[in-house]
Design a protein around this nucleic acid. Structure first.
Lengths: 235, 235, 235, 235
DNA sequence: GTGGTCTAGACCACA
DNA sequence: GTGGTCTAGACCACT
């Protein structure tokens, strides 16, 4: 129906939530989601609502469900063949610039607020995120460490709406640039995070903002390279 | 229930939508909403869903329903006694700074994008919004003209997520600073808008950004003054 | 899985049952099924199980679901365009001879048993079925009256297994030969039924058996004619 | 629950399947069923489902489970005391005529079709079944040879529904008339089979049908004699 | 101890 | 009063 306002069913919300968790690296390829009963309890929904959501994720190829004692719901292995996820990412081509711009708006100002308001505890969270990024040699959890850093900054900004929006925007894209990424870009990300951290720590809002914009732009660039082989012209 | 994910019923969505329309000045105090049948059709929902939504707005004191030939659903007259809406606004005190910061994040970057991407047609929309603001002597539709300008900028930025978020953020607050506002602040707003317009027209992103931040800060300041009599310290 | 034995889910059973009801004319095109709550109670299953079954019927194009006060679950109108159901029937081409032979085996012997065991009450049921067939000028309920006669014979045979199998076999085919059939074949069916009735009434098992075989063969022939335009060679 | 439609659990299906195998003589008294792992694999079900099914067969006294090196699942020895199985058969008294009539309906027509459609390969199967019946001096596998002949005819009829129904009907009854049967009735069965075979071979449908009816009637009669000592009046 | 199915009852959105 | 969604709990089939 061509309605102006819409309702969302619980099932849809749950599906979107799970998709976001996967996009943000909370669950990586091959990981097993918690058992249905447990996950339903965590989310505060009935098991059947969760199951319906899982069915749509199955249909989208996000997860595979296996029965039996060692069964469960598993995030689809995408690494081989690589073309699988490359195809999936191409589907969201139009979204990449949209979301990158949106993220810049949100995160470049969030980092300003963070520079002004960060507490020692915030800094500690950020350091921990950077550290786990450094230790990520095998890259399997690169995305998770990345998410932790950006979420940490969002939280340090002390604005619930910003935090929520940043979190959500990062969850919209399936962007496993970690899969193909080797030493170089990973190292670049680590350096970016460290520089942003330093600016926030030093309460240098202007510098933090500039660094964040550059960081997200670089990420966008890398993502396009991974998808298209080289950076195509952007909007 | 303490759930992580939630569904929204149509009734809630409709109520929120109507509240947003009133917040943004699409319907001002004393205005009559379209007939139920018509409004339900416009929104693409069943009449009963709309009626349910209106009931919650009634309970919140947003609208009054009058029966009979000259009946209908009317936005509550708030001007007298003034204390009514002052009380209502105090309820959202905690939200004012949250939303102001959020709006700065969204709109200060949107205006940058607008400066880069605005088309002649965008400029025409903005000029028209400024003009209707000038003609607003009686102030009843001040808020509407204000909304039109900010929405126009959001659209010129060419990013659907930004546009949607800006629209929604402006709809969250009941901020009828127009009610108490007299010549001075109204004139200030008009000047702000014109300055921002000029910067966007001249493709001066940096200047547009600075002006927008100042404009939203000024709005926040005025709002606090109206509520508390003078600007209290902010978070 | 290539299993020798299989389980059937309730949903499947219910779907098959409903399909059978439609095939046998208990619900004709355009008819509304009982409300979900009521039908579920009648079938002795939970509403959700029924709903799942209805979903598969929807997917197969058997029924349409409409919401609202005058909504419900409706058997798909097939009459226009005629090609719809012709296409559906072609799908079961291979089954027509299978089922016809199977029905001859079951019903030609059932009619023998009926001739031996029929009670006055059985005869009354059969007469009533024949009468409602005669009154069927508009043909909408031809199939139902037809089913009633054959079911009545099956019951008169006094063998539960035969009765069940006859009932089921008649439910397997979507055979709305009533839709295209005009005076002639309808009249032929009426005559067949009357002749079989007379033989059963007179306890003439041999004659009843012969007539039943001819009747089913004629039905098979008509069905093939309706589908293919003329009787194609049979297996 | 008093439901119109039912689902069947896998366990029930498996139990019924095994019971049918025993009824049809695939496994005779004293025989050891294949190992659980193997049997589960053959049936395409999980081992636990098979175990559950075996438990119900145990409860019904069909099989005995023995542990240890020479253990396994064994079909219960029924010969002594004879009263055991006589009691079991009495339980199905009501079914005997039902099933006999049903079998006549199915098999008397199947044999007609077989007479028309039998291939040389079909005849070969039938001859082989007759031969193994003749060699059955010790009678332990009489039932198996009997089943093979009737199944062979069902297959020669070339109608899947008939074949399935015949197979199932024969599996419903626990009818070890072989246990008590001595030379005479065994010889009678052999002669019946040979006569039916000849009629089918000669494509004499009418004769085959008559012979089959007589054969099944004779079987019914013998069964009643075995159970009650003499043929009681039938329904 | 996993996912798969089913139940009984409740509330919501619809026309 | 219809279909649409959700819940809390149970049992079944699988590995």
């Amino acid at each position: 129906m061509n309605r102006v306002v819409t309702s969302t069913t619980l099932t849809q919300s749950v599906a979107e939530h799970l998709r976001s968790l996967i996009h943000r690296g909370e669950f990586g390829p091959g990981d097993r989601l918690p058992a249905e009963r447990e996950l339903a309890e965590q989310l505060g929904v009935a098991r059947m609502s969760l199951r319906d959501a899982i069915k749509t994720l199955q249909a989208d190829g996000y997860v595979e469900v296996r029965r039996g004692a060692r069964g469960g719901t598993f995030v689809t292995e995408l690494q081989r063949p690589v073309e699988n996820w490359r195809a999936r990412m191409r589907k969201q081509t139009g979204e990449i610039d949209e979301i990158a711009d949106f993220r810049i708006a949100l995160e470049s100002y969030a980092v300003r607020l963070a520079a002004a308001r960060r507490t020692p505890s915030d800094l500690s969270v950020l350091r921990s995120a950077i550290k786990s990024l450094s230790h990520t040699e095998g890259l399997p959890s690169f995305r998770l460490a990345d998410s932790r850093f950006h979420d940490g900054l969002a939280q340090a900004a002390g604005n619930v709406r910003l935090e929520t929006a940043i979190h959500a925007a990062r969850g919209e894209l399936f962007s496993p640039h970690d899969i193909l990424m080797y030493k170089e870009p990973l190292e670049a990300t680590r350096k970016d995070h460290e520089a942003i951290y330093a600016a926030v720590r030093d309460r240098d809002a202007d510098r933090a903002e500039v660094l964040m914009r550059e960081h997200i732009e670089r990420t966008r660039h890398q993502l396009r390279e991974v998808i298209f082989g080289s950076a195509a012209g952007q909007a």
